[in-house]
Amino acid sequence: MNWTHHWRRIALTLFSAGLLALSGWGTVISSAQAAHSTAAGTPVCGTGDHGLLKDLHKKHAQQEEAPFAFSDISFLNSETGRAVGNGFMIGTSDGGCHFQEIYQGQWNFKGISFPDNVHGWAIASIGEGQANYLIASADGGSTWKNISGKATVFDRIDFMDSKNGFAYSRNAVFSTKDSGQSWTEIQTPANTRGAYFSSPSSGWSVVVAPGTGYRVMKTTDGGTTWKLSLQSGITYPTGGEIYAKGNQVYALLYGDSGMSQTSYSLYASSDKGGTWKRVIAQATAGGGPAPGSGSAQLKSGPASGRPGNMQLVGNSTAILVGYSPAGEQVAVGRTVNGGRTWSNLKPIQGFEGTISFPDSKHGWLAVREQDESAVYATADGGSSWKQKFAFKDAGR
Score class of each variant (00 low, 15 high):
residue 3 W to R: 14
residue 6 H to E: 09
residue 13 T to F: 12
residue 13 T to D: 11
residue 16 S to E: 00
residue 29 I to S: 11
residue 30 S to M: 05
residue 37 S to I: 04
residue 37 S to Q: 09
residue 39 A to W: 11
residue 42 T to Y: 01
residue 47 T to Y: 07
residue 47 T to C: 03
residue 55 D to V: 15
residue 55 D to M: 13
residue 67 P to I: 14
residue 68 F to T: 08
residue 72 D to L: 01
residue 72 D to C: 03
residue 72 D to I: 01
residue 77 N to F: 06
residue 82 R to L: 14
residue 94 D to Y: 05
residue 96 G to H: 00
residue 100 Q to H: 07
residue 126 I to K: 03
residue 138 A to F: 09
residue 145 K to W: 09
residue 149 G to Y: 10
residue 156 R to A: 11
residue 161 D to Y: 08
residue 163 K to E: 13
residue 164 N to K: 03
residue 168 Y to W: 08
residue 187 Q to T: 14
residue 189 P to T: 13
residue 194 G to F: 02
residue 197 F to K: 06
residue 206 V to W: 06
residue 209 A to T: 15
residue 212 T to H: 14
residue 212 T to R: 13
residue 213 G to I: 06
residue 216 V to A: 11
residue 220 T to R: 05
residue 224 T to V: 12
residue 227 K to D: 12
residue 227 K to Q: 15
residue 231 Q to V: 14
residue 231 Q to C: 06
residue 233 G to W: 07
residue 234 I to H: 05
residue 243 Y to A: 04
residue 243 Y to W: 01
residue 250 Y to L: 13
residue 255 G to D: 09
residue 257 S to R: 06
residue 260 S to A: 13
residue 261 Q to D: 01
residue 266 L to P: 02
residue 267 Y to P: 08
residue 268 A to S: 15
residue 269 S to G: 10
residue 273 G to I: 03
residue 279 V to W: 01
residue 283 A to K: 10
residue 285 A to N: 12
residue 286 G to H: 05
residue 288 G to C: 11
residue 291 P to S: 07
residue 293 S to C: 00
residue 294 G to C: 07
residue 307 P to K: 11
residue 316 S to M: 10
residue 317 T to M: 03
residue 323 Y to S: 14
residue 334 R to F: 15
residue 350 G to M: 06
residue 351 F to Q: 14
residue 366 A to V: 11
residue 380 D to T: 00
residue 391 F to R: 10
residue 391 F to T: 11
